[in-house]
């Protein structure tokens, strides 16, 4: 996973340039995560459509909680990019109102909509590109993968076997991990 490493380093750099200090928080690990087999992903966007239809009731690329790395096939390295339910979720850490919580059943990091003030801090702080946490411009609320309560629609919609839902009751070491010694 060399890609991830690069991503992490870049993110750390970004964070150092813009130090808005919020103490890191420790949250329980997610019990499930959506994993992608990039070799088999054809960028058919079935997952994207399934996500926006299931969760927002509309068809949209912007409002899907699973995104493609690039919008064009011209870029060779392209595949679906789901939320990784990070070990150290930066969205949760930087949310000023505590609207992002850990779901008791799935361990997914979820947004409690009534507390979201639409500041987009979480979108900005997401360590990944494209940000796995999206912003609904109409509702002025952030939206985020909640693993569909343990039965992700995107995984069901994938016909190439590129997406899978991986679960571990003891928690999954996944996504962004705070480097030791940094704050």
């Amino acid at each position: 996973m060399s890609d991830k490493k690069i991503e992490t380093e870049e993110v750390n750099k970004k964070r150092l340039i813009k130090p808005a200090f919020v103490p890191p928080v420790r949250v329980p690990l997610s019990k499930g995560v959506i994993i992608v087999d990039e070799e088999h992903c054809t960028c058919c966007m079935h997952c994207v459509h399934a996500c926006s239809l299931t969760n927002e009731g509309v068809c949209s690329h912007e409002l899907a909680r699973i995104q493609l790395a690039e919008s064009t096939n011209y870029i060779f390295e392209n595949s679906a990019k789901p939320c990784l339910q990070c070990v150290d979720p930066q969205c949760l850490r930087y949310c000023p109102t505590g609207a992002i919580k850990v779901d008791a059943a799935t361990g997914a990091r979820i947004i409690e909509e009534k507390f979201c003030i639409g500041c987009q801090n979480c979108v900005e702080k997401c360590p990944y590109d494209p940000p796995r946490i999206r912003f609904n411009k109409e509702k002025k609320k952030a939206i985020k993968c909640d693993l569909c309560g343990g039965d992700p629609a995107c995984v069901k919609a994938c016909s190439h076997g590129a997406l899978a839902y991986f679960t571990d009751p003891n928690g999954v070491q996944t996504g962004y991990i705070q480097p030791k010694g940094s704050v």
């Binding site: 926006s52 239809l53 299931t54």
Partner: peptide
């Protein structure tokens, strides 16, 4: 970056599933 409204999103996914 907009979206298109549909009448019955669940049904679309069912039909897709069937066709696939």
């Amino acid at each position: 970056t907009g979206s298109i409204k549909v009448a019955n999103p669940k049904r679309i996914l069912e039909v897709n599933e069937h066709m696939r």
